[in-house]
Design a protein around this nucleic acid. Structure first.
Length: 561
DNA sequence: AAAAAAC
C-alpha cells in the first residue's frame, strides 16, 4: 500500500505543464515517423511486424469474412487498388484490407485519397495541411467511406474495428463543415456551440480533444474539453457563444443544460463515439436528453463504434434520420493482427501466480491488464509492486481526476510498463505502443472483449492478447472463443466443443458447463506439455512459486506456425 | 448478460 502510493506520487512530478506536455507528446507520437521505428529497434524479436501487417494475417480474415454477403447491400473492397504504391509506405500506417459494406439511400462515392476531398468538397487547405503534419497519408476504410457521407450532411452509423481511425472520420468532416457554414447568414453560425462529440469516459474525451486540437492547429476555433471548470466558465454568455466544438461525457453536459448554462439549439453536428456504450441503459437517458436539446433543424447525427449489438443498433437507427450504415470488416470482431490466447487458471487464487510467472519471462511492455473491479485493480497493482515488477501503474474511475490524468500521462510517455485498469480503459484509448493486453478477469461481454484487446494492434501494428479464464467463467467461455475463431486465432478443441449456453436455462447450464470446463481443462492439463501450449497447465496440480520461471514454453508460443 | 462509468 505504502509502496504503491509512493510510486503514484513519483509520477506527480510531471504535474507542472502536464497538459502541455501531454499534447506535445501526443503530437510527436503520431507525427514523428521515427517514433515507431525507434521503439521497434529498441525491442528485439518480432519487430518487422509491418511486413505482416501488409499482407499476412489480414488475408486470413478477408477470406473468412465474405460468405455473410449482403442483400441489397453494396459491396466493395476498399484499398485494394492502391496496393502498388503501398510498398514504400512503411512510415505511414500500414493498410489493412477490410471489406466495406454500406447500406442506405444515395451513398456518396468514397474517396481514395485525402486530396480528393479538396476537389470534391473544397475542404480547406489548412485542414489538409494539418493532416499531413500529423502523418495521415491515406484514408483508412472508415475514413474513405465515412468522410464523404458526413460531408454530404448525411446521418451515419459507422462500425469499424478498433484502431482504424474512427476519430478522424468524424472530426475532419465536422471541422470542414464548421469552416464553411451552410447557413445563410454568418452571424447565425457564430451563436452558440455548433458541434458536440460525446464519449463515455473522461480519458477518451481528453484524447479526442487532443486529436481535435491537432487538426485545428493554426485556426481560431474554440474547442472545449468539457469539465467542471470549463462548465463554469461557460456560464458566461460571452464565452459560451464563442465555442465551436464541445467534447464531453454525457452527464457533465446534461448537468450544464439543466442548469440553464448551456444552450444547444445551434448544434449542427452531434457525434456519439463508442455508440453502443453510450446507448447502454445508464447513459441512454442522458444522451436522449442531449439529443432533445439539440433543436437545430439541420442537426446531423452520427454514431461510431467497433461493436454495435442489435439492440443498440436499433436504438441508434431510431435516432438517425435517413441514415447510411457503414460496416468495415466484421462487426463485433477484433483485428486479425491481434494474436489471441485463452489461458486456463483454475480459480481466482491461481491468477496472481500465473501473472507473476508471465512477468518473470520476457514480455513486451507496455502491457495493459484488465480487472473486473476497481478494488481488484488497486490490489493487483499493489501485489505486482510488492513482487518487484517495475513501473506498475493503476487507473480506474475511483481515482481522482488528477491521478487519472497522471496515469494516462505516464502511459503516453512510455513510463508505465504494466498498467492495471478497469473497463474505463477498455474503449477508445489509443496508446499506440501497447503490445500486449491481459484479461486478468474475464470480460463480461463479447463487446467488452473486443474493445479491451483492441487497445493493442492499433493502426496496423501487431498485438497480443491473453485472457485468463477460471472454472467460473465456463458459461461465457464459448462466446469469447467464437470471437477468437472468427478473427483467425486458434482455440483448444475442447472449448470449441463446449455446448452452447441456452438463454432460458443459463443458470443450470452454468453449472453443467462449469463441470465440463473443469473436466476438460483437467484432461488438457495432463498432456499439455506435449501439445496444448495455449493453456497454462497445472494451476491445479502444481502451485507456482512467485517469480520462478516455468520449465515449459507455454508463454512464447504463437497461435499458429 | 453484467460491472463500470458518467456528475
Amino acid at each position: 500500500m505504502e509502496a504503491f502510493q509512493l510510486l503514484s506520487r513519483g509520477g506527480a512530478k510531471f504535474d507542472k505543464k502536464r497538459f502541455y506536455n501531454d499534447v506535445k507528446l501526443f503530437n510527436k507520437d503520431v507525427k514523428g515517423k521515427s517514433v515507431p521505428k525507434i521503439n521497434e529497434s529498441e525491442l528485439p524479436a518480432e519487430l518487422d511486424f509491418f511486413k505482416y501487417a501488409q499482407g499476412g494475417p489480414g488475408k486470413r480474415k478477408a477470406a473468412e469474412e465474405n460468405k455473410g454477403g449482403a442483400k441489397k447491400v453494396k459491396l466493395d473492397t476498399s484499398e485494394d487498388e492502391e496496393e502498388s504504391d503501398s510498398d514504400r509506405d512503411e512510415d505511414s500506417h500500414p493498410r489493412q484490407k477490410h471489406r466495406v459494406t454500406t447500406k442506405g439511400a444515395d451513398v456518396p462515392q468514397h474517396i481514395d485519397s485525402f486530396e480528393a476531398l479538396r476537389e470534391r468538397y473544397q475542404i480547406p487547405q489548412r485542414l489538409l495541411a494539418n493532416l499531413q503534419l500529423n502523418d495521415y497519408k491515406h484514408p483508412t476504410g472508415i475514413q474513405s467511406y465515412g468522410i464523404p457521407i458526413l460531408m454530404k450532411s448525411r446521418d451515419l452509423a459507422a462500425i469499424s474495428p478498433t484502431g482504424t481511425g474512427k476519430t478522424l472520420s468524424y472530426l475532419l468532416p465536422v471541422m470542414a463543415a464548421l469552416e464553411s457554414p451552410i447557413s445563410s447568414s454568418k452571424s447565425d453560425a457564430g451563436v452558440g456551440v455548433r458541434a458536440i462529440v460525446l464519449a463515455p469516459t473522461r480519458e477518451l474525451a481528453h484524447q479526442i480533444h487532443n486529436e481535435c486540437l491537432k487538426l485545428a492547429a493554426g485556426r481560431k476555433w474554440r474547442i472545449v474539453l468539457f469539465s467542471k471548470a470549463t462548465a463554469s466558465t461557460l456560464s458566461d454568455r460571452n464565452v459560451r457563444d464563442k465555442v465551436d466544438i464541445i467534447i464531453s461525457t454525457p452527464l457533465r453536459l446534461v448537468a450544464s443544460v439543466q442548469e440553464g448554462n448551456l444552450n444547444l439549439n445551434n448544434v449542427r453536428h452531434l457525434i456519439l463515439d463508442e455508440a453502443d456504450r453510450m446507448l447502454d441503459p445508464e447513459f441512454l437517458s442522458q444522451v436522449q436528453e442531449i439529443v432533445a436539446a439539440c433543436t437545430h433543424p439541420t442537426l446531423q447525427k452520427a454514431v461510431f463504434s467497433a461493436t454495435l449489438p442489435a439492440g443498440a443498433e436499433k436504438i441508434a437507427m431510431g435516432m438517425l434520420r435517413d441514415p447510411i450504415r457503414v460496416v468495415v470488416g466484421l462487426k463485433d470482431t477484433p483485428l486479425p493482427l491481434i494474436s489471441q490466447t485463452l489461458t486456463y487458471v483454475a480459480d481466482d487464487g491461481s491468477k496472481l501466480p500465473s501473472l507473476l510467472t508471465y512477468f518473470s519471462q520476457p514480455y513486451n511492455p507496455p502491457v495493459l491488464v484488465f480487472t473486473s473491479t476497481q478494488p481488484r485493480a488497486t490490489s493487483l497493482a499493489e501485489e505486482l509492486l510488492l513482487n518487484g515488477i517495475p513501473n506498475v501503474d493503476c487507473l480506474h474511475a475511483g481515482m481522482t481526476k488528477k491521478e487519472r490524468e497522471d496515469a494516462v500521462s505516464r502511459m503516453r510517455k512510455g513510463e508505465s510498463w504494466v498498467m492495471i485498469s478497469t473497463e474505463v480503459m477498455a474503449r477508445g484509448m489509443d496508446f499506440k505502443g501497447i503490445r500486449e493486453v491481459i484479461n486478468y478477469d474475464f470480460p463480461t461481454s463479447v463487446q467488452s472483449y473486443v474493445h479491451r484487446i483492441g487497445r493493442t494492434g492499433r493502426a496496423g501494428r501487431e498485438g497480443k492478447a491473453v485472457t485468463y479464464f477460471t472454472d467460473e467463467d465456463g458459461p461465457y467461455l464459448k462466446s469469447i472463443a467464437n470471437v477468437l475463431l472468427q478473427s483467425g486465432s486458434t482455440v483448444p478443441d475442447w472449448i470449441v466443443k463446449l455446448p452452447k449456453p441456452s438463454k432460458m436455462k443459463k443458470k443450470q447450464m452454468g453449472k453443467i458447463q462449469r463441470a465440463e470446463t473443469v473436466n476438460a481443462a483437467r484432461k488438457i492439463g495432463r498432456n499439455d506439455a506435449i501439445k496444448k501450449r495455449d493453456m497454462i497447465a497445472g494451476s491445479k496440480r502444481r502451485k507456482m512459486k512467485v517469480n520462478k520461471p516455468p520449465k515449459d514454453d507455454e508463454h512464447d508460443s504463437k497461435t499458429s506456425e
